[in-house]
């Protein structure tokens, strides 16, 4: 019953991974590498690499990768469903409660305290991707040699365009992908 096992394992990962993203890595490693031995440690590192290069949440990427390995595309679907089912249940309950009680003054007070914290959260999540864009090696920090000139140009131009005009995020990313690839290819 590989399907059931996949579902349950990723259900487990999905229901315990608070904070999302890389916080869920140890949990996935424990389940997939150590407990079930579905992947070797080298495979697991490969997944992390792929996840950094491809879009999408790392938990979903791992679900799909492991599922495909174990039982083909149906395995990928089952693992992904397992991973998102806990979210669906918990978040839908929260969404329902929010709709129902958001006008209570207590809830209003809590939410107005959370909003500025979330702004900070978003900004700080942004710092790592900004650092990755502006410097060749974010670990080395600000030195002239470490500056990624093309990244800086792309970043500043995009930011300026968005400050002046409303541009959809997807158009912005695609344009950067094309222009960036050309610049990096010829100048990088």
């Amino acid at each position: 019953m590989i399907y059931l096992q996949l579902f349950l394992t990723f259900f487990h990962v999905g229901s315990l991974s608070f904070g999302g993203g890389y916080a869920s890595l140890p949990l996935i490693q424990e389940q997939v590498v150590l407990k079930h031995k579905w992947l070797s440690m080298a495979d697991f590192v490969d997944i992390i690499t792929i996840s950094q290069m491809t879009p999408g949440p790392i938990a979903l990427n791992t679900s799909t990768f492991v599922g495909t390995r174990m039982a083909g595309f149906p395995g990928a679907v089952v693992a992904t469903l397992g991973c998102v089912t806990p979210s669906c249940i918990i978040v839908l309950i929260l969404a329902f409660l929010y709709k129902r009680y958001k006008n209570l003054s207590v809830v209003q007070a809590i939410l107005s305290g959370l909003r500025p914290a979330v702004v900070a959260l978003i900004a700080s999540a942004g710092t790592s991707i900004v650092a990755l864009t502006l410097w060749h090696d974010p670990e080395l920090g600000m030195s002239a040699a470490n500056f990624n000139g093309i990244g800086v140009v792309l970043f500043v131009t995009s930011l300026a365009i968005m400050r002046i005009r409303r541009v959809g995020p997807i158009k912005m990313m695609l344009a950067n992908g094309v222009v960036g690839a050309v610049l990096y290819y010829f100048l990088g």
Binding site: A125, G126, G151, F155, S158, L159, M172, G177, A181, L183
Partner: peptide, 20 residues
């Protein structure tokens, strides 16, 4: 692939900063 992805990264960074 890696060049396109690197370019897109700059776009994502710009959107994140703009919105922040």
């Amino acid at each position: 692939v890696s060049l396109v992805l690197r370019g897109m990264q700059a776009g994502v960074a710009a959107v994140v900063v703009d919105v922040s």
